[in-house]
């Protein structure tokens, strides 16, 4: 079966159009077709969350979405959250609080954390740990990831207050 479909996606604000087999997993589309290689693959059982992206406003593991399902979707990856010259508060905070070591889980972590803080701007530590539970990390032991997310929440809330 070479039943290629016409697919249209918006990724980090850019429209993408291509032909793809429906079975192509969104993570492969991002990494191999669109060269958006921040999101990673850490498992084949939907546990690790290294492939997390934001799809139509939801935190989604892109290894468990067929490109066919995502047709027409609006997707944000770590590359759309910030870049080296213009880091998102979470990216700065992960750096300052040592929330990463090997960096392999980090794109998924930060993408998930961005959505999490949008939904819960004033989390408790328990909220953060539970809200990030779909993302595994082998290096950090999570403690500094929690600190980084807390620090970002404070920073974003302070910025919001200052703006009001």
């Amino acid at each position: 079966m070479s039943n290629k479909m016409h697919i249209k996606l918006t990724v980090n604000g850019e429209e993408q159009e291509f032909l793809a087999e429906p079975r192509e997993l969104l993570i492969h589309t991002l990494r191999e077709r669109l060269d958006i290689t921040g999101p990673h693959i850490g498992c084949e059982t939907t546990h690790c969350g290294a492939c997390t992206v934001t799809l139509n406003g939801k935190s989604v593991k892109s290894c468990t979405v067929f490109v066919a399902q995502a047709n027409g979707a609006d997707i944000t990856t770590i590359e759309g959250i910030g870049d080296p010259d213009n880091l998102h508060a979470l990216q700065t905070s992960f750096k300052e609080h040592h929330g990463l070591q090997c960096g392999f889980c980090t794109p998924g972590m930060i993408t998930r954390a961005a959505k999490f803080l949008e939904e819960n701007p004033n989390p408790t530590e328990e909220d953060v740990r539970f809200g990030m539970a779909g993302n595994l990390c082998r290096c950090t032991g999570y403690q500094n990831i929690v600190k980084a997310i807390f620090a970002t929440a404070d920073e974003l809330n302070a910025a919001k207050e200052a703006a009001e």
């Binding site: 039943n3 087999e21 429906p22 079975r23 290894c63 066919a68």
Partner: peptide
Amino acid sequence: MIPAAFEYYRP
């Protein structure tokens, strides 16, 4: 990791 090919429908 790699699923087999399929025909996709979105009614």
